[in-house]
């Protein structure tokens, strides 16, 4: 499957009558890793959930390869656009059971060679196949979640703070796995993070989302270069308060 392009066009979102996102527009090119960076509670996750319609977006605001996602078959959309959450929920059973879950919903049986291949994509050893899903470290669990999401053969991935519950070493491992995956599978990735250093390490381009608006954008090199006056650099230095500057 060829990697798709996302277009988010004049996207606004209210929650309990309060605006969460206000006229947000941006794009993700095929095969690109784009980070949506910003302080916690800024509506980043709410936006991400609209891309695979876990939350219904307003019509004609989110396009996948030029097609309005609200007009697409929702289950096909979710198989095409995988998602990894901040908190990992592995289903009861073995690691293999978890990886086979998505294809199993369609009545497909995943051969063990394919399980091993998916584990390898997530940089996990074959021995983990028969392991109980509740007996994994945080980093392992998150990478099993990644392998599980890859099992349905998505062309794009939505990552919702996938490393914020992990220690620094596990965080780096997940990052390098994602970078490798983008190389090998050509996935289009939209990565939500509150960590500027992470955005700097993984992103091709960064959008800074503050108080529901995109306040800054560019490549990490551009945004974070020494002496940068960009708001992203201000946020990275911890000098951006909750209020709009």
């Amino acid at each position: 499957m060829t990697s798709p392009r996302f277009d988010i066009v004049h996207f606004s979102l209210n929650r309990h009558g309060q605006p969460v996102l206000d006229d947000v527009s941006f794009y993700v090119d095929p095969g690109e890793i784009v980070c949506l960076l910003g302080p916690s509670g800024g509506g980043k996750s709410s936006l991400l959930r609209c891309l695979n319609r876990l939350t219904e977006p307003p019509p004609q605001t989110i396009y996948l390869d030029g097609q309005d996602v609200t007009a697409m078959d929702v289950l096909a959309l979710r198989r095409r656009v995988g998602m990894v959450f901040q908190q990992v929920a592995l289903f009861p059973g073995t690691v293999a059971d978890n990886i086979a879950y998505g294809p199993g919903l369609q009545g497909q049986i995943v051969p063990s060679a394919e399980i091993v291949r998916l584990l390898a994509l997530a940089d996990l050893p074959e021995e983990l196949t028969a392991r109980d899903s509740q007996e994994l470290s945080g980093g392992q669990a998150q990478r099993v979640a990644l392998a599980r999401a890859l099992a349905t053969g998505p062309a794009a991935m939505l990552l919702d703070e996938p490393t914020s519950a992990l220690d620094p070493a596990a965080t780096r491992n997940v990052e390098s796995t994602m970078l490798k995956l983008r190389q090998s599978l050509g996935l289009t990735v939209l990565w939500v993070t509150h960590d500027p250093e992470q955005a700097r390490r993984v992103a091709d381009r960064v959008y800074l989302l503050v108080n529901g608006r995109i306040e800054d954008e560019g490549t990490p090199d551009h945004l974070f270069r020494p002496g940068s006056q960009h708001l992203t650099a201000v946020f990275a230095a911890g000098e951006l308060g909750g209020a709009r500057s």
Binding site: L54, L75, R78, F91, P92, Y101, G102, Q106, T152
Partner: peptide
Amino acid sequence: QLEIETALALGATRQQAVRP
């Protein structure tokens, strides 16, 4: 909620997601 939405995100129908 997390398990259910994880299942939905993997392409489960609401019925499949809620079955257990």
